[in-house]
């Protein structure tokens, strides 16, 4: 199991675990029966086979039991999915822009960043846009993946519940450097996040003045 670092990771993993257990049960059952029959009804041991054309109650049984089980699995998956797609209204909104082969994160105040800095325990809603081809925004530790498709407004959301660094990957093939379209989510405490944001704002203001100075200098030089 990989780290669960987001609010709904446990419900995804629970669904996965349930299906896994059922699957292993059936695989062991089938394989066990096949091996038992091979040994028990080997041609040497059992030279005289018995014809059995079928058994209706058995057919009904092994149709109904799997059907009930898959309906439970379906329900697990569906309710988990509802969670993944229902962000609260007070989410912090961030624009995610994908482009061959970089990510860019833009905050509501216009600040941009290559890595995704977010505060812990706060719902974040990411609006996904692509400037060129299809990409997919994937954070394995958050169990989220959403395609980023040009001309479409997709979004995803999450509440990171542990401070730390997590991998962002592009999961939809997008050409030459697809496997290098990586970055990080950096989950900070609320205080650390405001400090980071403040630094970014200062930096931006300085840059604005610097570039204004440059323009002035250039015009002086002329």
């Amino acid at each position: 199991m990989i780290a669960q670092s987001v609010n709904y990771a446990h419900s995804v993993d629970e669904a996965f675990l349930f299906i896994l257990i059922v699957s292993v049960f059936f695989l062991v059952l089938i394989t066990g029966l096949i091996i038992t029959f091979i040994i028990k009804y080997n041609r040497k041991k059992n030279p005289k086979p018995t014809n059995i054309h079928g058994n209706l109650p058995l057919e009904i049984l092994w149709t109904i039991i799997p059907t009930v089980l898959v309906l439970i699995m379906f329900w697990y998956g569906w309710t988990g999915y509802k969670e993944i797609t229902s962000p609260p209204d007070d989410s912090m909104e961030i624009d995610v822009t994908a482009q061959m082969w970089v990510w860019k994160f833009t905050y509501k105040n216009g600040i941009t960043s290559d890595s995704l800095y977010i505060p812990v325990n706060r719902p974040v809603k990411a609006h996904l846009t692509s400037l060129d081809v299809n990409h997919s925004f994937y954070i394995p530790e958050f169990r989220i993946k959403k395609d980023v498709i040009p001309g479409r407004k997709n979004f995803t959301w999450f509440i990171a519940d542990k401070v730390g660094k997590y991998q962002i990957l592009c999961a939809e093939y997008c050409g030459l450097n697809h496997s290098y379209m990586l970055n990080k989510v950096i989950v900070l405490t609320a205080d650390e996040f405001s400090i980071w944001m403040q630094e970014k704002l200062n930096e931006k203001n300085n840059q604005d003045t610097v570039s204004a100075d440059n323009i002035n200098n250039q015009s002086v030089a002329k």
């Binding site: 995804v12 299906i19 699957s23 379906f74 998956g77 999915y81 394995p140 993946k145 959403k146």
Partner: peptide, 11 residues
């Protein structure tokens, strides 16, 4: 079957 479950498939 695991991938049929929506929340699991997303991952």
């Amino acid at each position: 079957v695991m991938q049929g479950a929506l929340s699991v498939d997303i991952h």
